[in-house]
Design a protein around this nucleic acid. Structure first.
Lengths: 184, 184
DNA sequence: TTGATTAGGAAACAATCATTCCCTATTATG
DNA sequence: CATAATAGGGAATGATTGTTTCCTAATCAA
């Protein structure tokens, strides 16, 4: 089931919702048409399930990146670096299903829009938390506005996925280095 | 012709390429099916023309925002503020056709991907130019890396459109204030 | 082993899509 | 004024879409 969903994630990330036909889905999930409709009510339900799987997987990866830091500042830096890496290469070209949903569906699908905003809020809270951790351990100045900075960083990360999908090269060290100025 | 294209821009921004049917297009352009196909070869050509019109209009607005600044730093700040404003409210909900094209089409349509990357490069060069102007007039420190900073700012602006489309509130003064730290 | 239940697959379905064709006004030209 | 030329509109057309239905094969219980 999860491996089938991974296929759905892949094709939905790459082509988005509307450009992905049931034929594309069955090929990517290695399932026949009838089997897909046995497991899910309709295409929309497959997409929602793929979204959940994507969010869970990416959440793990981001938390793992943060865990590799000794203090708040380093954890945040690792998270930013991780975002840049995931915005590049094959995965970058493939794209992010959260960004794709926000851009393609949030104007016409309230259910998905709510899920997208919830995800963005979760990610933003996570970053704001890292900033506050850094302020508590002394690695980030106390005068930094955690919420505003976190929101701007969310914009950066989402934008990285857009730019990465357009295949512009992204240098993790350089970009993260510049972005860390926001914590001055 | 331009007013018809404005309608196409509106509906393509809001729903993207694939979710916009010819019926949606004819309604937005106030033209019948046959008339659209008299003026354009196919749907793809309409989209490309709408992209060009959007890019021209937004380019004007951005240059106008920059013109209202006394030095490089202020011009850049006005550009960032302008981006935040355009990412909010009705226009923010509607979305950016460049971001939409990058996310929805750049993986499967080389023509549009090339147009998108060209637009991103143009915008990035414009911002890098403003940074260098600021360094020349003394409003921005010379040690700022113009190209890296410009690329990160492009990510920010594209991300603003993603977040704005998901309808998260964006405070221009606060976000621009934080972003200006990148010029320290 | 037999019978029942379920997972999986392929063809058929109605609806919608982009596109073409043809007709009607309207404008411009001689 | 008459006529050629064009812009615009709407119905018809294949192709493709998402979905349903029916059939086969496999799995588990008794």
């Amino acid at each position: 089931m999860d491996t089938a969903l991974d296929g759905a994630v892949r094709v939905f990330c790459e082509r988005g919702y509307h450009a992905t036909s049931i034929g594309d889905l069955t090929a990517a999930m290695r399932l026949a048409t009838g089997s897909v409709y046995k497991a899910f009510r309709d295409k929309h339900a497959v997409f929602l399930a793929a979204f959940e799987r994507y969010a869970a997987l990416r959440g793990e990866q981001t938390r793992a990146a943060a865990a590799r830091g000794e203090n708040g500042r380093e954890r945040l830096r690792n998270v930013l670096l991780s975002y840049v890496e995931h915005s590049q290469g094959l995965e970058g070209r493939r794209g992010c299903i959260v960004v794709g949903s926000a851009v393609e569906l949030s104007a016409v699908d309230p259910v998905i829009r709510a899920r997208v905003t919830a995800q963005l809020m979760t990610n933003e809270k996570f970053i704001a938390g890292l900033i506050r951790e850094g302020q508590a351990d002394g690695s980030i100045p106390a005068h930094v506005e955690a919420d505003d900075t976190a929101r701007l960083m969310i914009c950066m990360t989402q934008g990285l996925r857009v730019v990465g999908k357009a295949r512009l090269p992204l240098d993790g060290e350089r970009l993260a280095g510049v972005a860390m100025k926001l914590l001055a």
